[in-house]
């Protein structure tokens, strides 16, 4: 990957890539691996980008796909199964990556969501519209709305008493 490409096309969107990678990785080492793999895949697939969607939307989609693929691989290695299943061991393994304690708590709660719900809430928190989320995830926009409400309820329960 050329330095120019990284600086001009990836670095301006590094924020969302970092947020997504943090949500799917459980250690600093994993996070760095995921981040590098996402950047590499963006570079490799750059010719597949079509002007129909925005570059940032394309990066969201690709980052999510790469993270989900890596997560599947990691789960295969540890012989667990991948699906809409809530991970149990994640919270214990998670470290505090951010200065803001409440953000760390929120991330720990997000990591307890299913893989798809994690993707949905990340996009919602990034202020993507329901339609945009639906396009990225491949779901109906109405379903996204209902699902976001449920996820928020779930997060509230998980965070209850942990943050002020």
């Amino acid at each position: 990957m050329s330095h120019d490409f990284y600086t001009t096309h990836i670095l301006p969107h590094a924020g969302i890539i970092i947020k997504i990678c943090r949500a799917y990785s459980n250690s600093q080492e994993d996070f760095e691996d995921y981040y590098q793999e996402v950047c590499l895949q963006i570079w490799r697939s750059r010719d597949n980008f079509s002007e129909r969607s925005e570059w940032s939307t394309w990066i969201y989609r690709l980052s999510l796909n790469v993270c989900l693929t890596l997560l599947k691989k990691d789960k295969k290695k540890t012989k667990t199964f991948v699906s809409d299943v809530i991970p149990k061991e994640v919270v214990e393994d998670s470290q505090s990556f951010f200065k803001e304690e409440s953000l760390n708590e929120l991330y720990k709660a997000i990591k307890q969501l299913t893989e798809i719900n994690r993707a949905i809430i990340l996009l919602y928190l990034e202020e993507k519209s329901y339609q945009e989320i639906a396009n990225i995830i491949g779901m109906n926009a109405n379903t996204i709305g209902v699902r976001i409400n449920r996820i928020k309820e779930q997060l509230k329960k998980l965070l209850h008493g942990k943050i002020n």
Binding site: L11, G15, E32, S102, L103, E105, L106, L125
Partner: peptide, 22 residues
């Protein structure tokens, strides 16, 4: 009073140091 998750998210990422790319 508990903060909303949207608020935690925004506040947490206000500081750019939080998002340092490896």
């Amino acid at each position: 009073m508990e903060k909303s998750i949207e608020h935690i998210w925004k506040e947490g990422f206000v500081n750019n140091d939080t998002l340092v790319a490896p």
